[in-house]
């Protein structure tokens, strides 16, 4: 069953068209990577899905046309966007950030359990639970951003460069935790990542964007085997 489907998606900022017919298909409980150079349109693709940029083409989620919906409406359907730059709420505590993530939920008990789950997944957050998010390190903020997304109990998570600006070991920790989340929760994922090695530890398949178009699409194993992918994204 396909959960998310993009067909011929276009988007522009003012007069500049940056997406020129992007396609993407994410199966239920699947994880799909989006690779590509800076400015290829990876972030814009996620924005088109979450409704933060106006898009053309077809975007369906669970069989339902979601193109043109407001971001909060898209979120309410079960799509959690973890944006580039993390988007943590700096003046709120770690716990309050997590509670904001659960805003639409009514099951208080479940919310408390999920907060515990986040703290178990990201033990670093445990000791910072009453600190303001702005006082966290970059890695901790990224963990918090993912935690906030978990709190909304999404069916699909959009992850935008979760490794950005992190030390390699921290980036690996974050991806290890996200992989564990994927296995334990079955949340489907769209994973935008510069670091293809990291991405391939998480995703089943991926597409490579070039100037707003799909240049290549394949399973992780296929893409890893290709020379051009290796040269461009895997460091030789």
């Amino acid at each position: 069953m396909t959960l998310l489907e993009l067909e011929g998606v276009t988007a522009s900022y003012g007069p500049v068209q940056v997406l020129d017919g992007v396609s993407l298909s994410v199966p239920e409980e699947g994880a799909v990577g989006i690779l590509g150079a800076n400015g290829a349109g990876k972030t814009t693709t996620l924005r088109a899905i979450s409704g933060t940029v106006r898009a053309g083409g077809r975007i369906t989620f669970d069989g339902k046309d979601i193109r043109g919906m407001r971001p909060d409406q898209v979120a309410a359907l079960g799509i959690a966007h973890v944006p580039e730059g993390r988007g943590t709420l700096g003046d709120l505590t770690v716990r309050d950030n997590l509670r904001v993530g659960a805003y639409l939920r009514k099951d208080r008990k479940g919310v408390d359990q999920d907060i515990d789950y986040c703290l178990d997944l990201f033990p670093n957050l445990q000791e910072r639970i009453t600190s303001n998010a702005s006082a966290l390190s970059g890695g901790e903020q990224q963990m918090l951003a993912v935690g906030r997304a978990i709190m909304s109990k999404p069916r699909l998570m959009l992850l935008d460069e979760a490794s950005l600006g992190l030390a390699p070991s921290t980036a690996k920790n974050v991806y290890d935790a996200i992989r564990r989340l994927r296995i334990e929760s079955g949340i489907a994922m769209v994973v935008v990542e510069q670091n293809a090695n990291l991405a391939f530890t998480l995703v089943d398949s991926a597409t490579v964007l070039e100037t707003g178009r799909n240049a290549l699409t394949g399973t992780s194993a296929e893409l890893r085997g290709m020379d051009e992918i290796r040269r461009a994204y895997l460091g030789g």
Partner: peptide, 12 residues
């Protein structure tokens, strides 16, 4: 604090 980020959690 951040309206766009808040919307990602479904806040109207």
């Amino acid at each position: 604090i951040n309206p766009q980020s808040a919307a990602f959690s479904g806040l109207p």
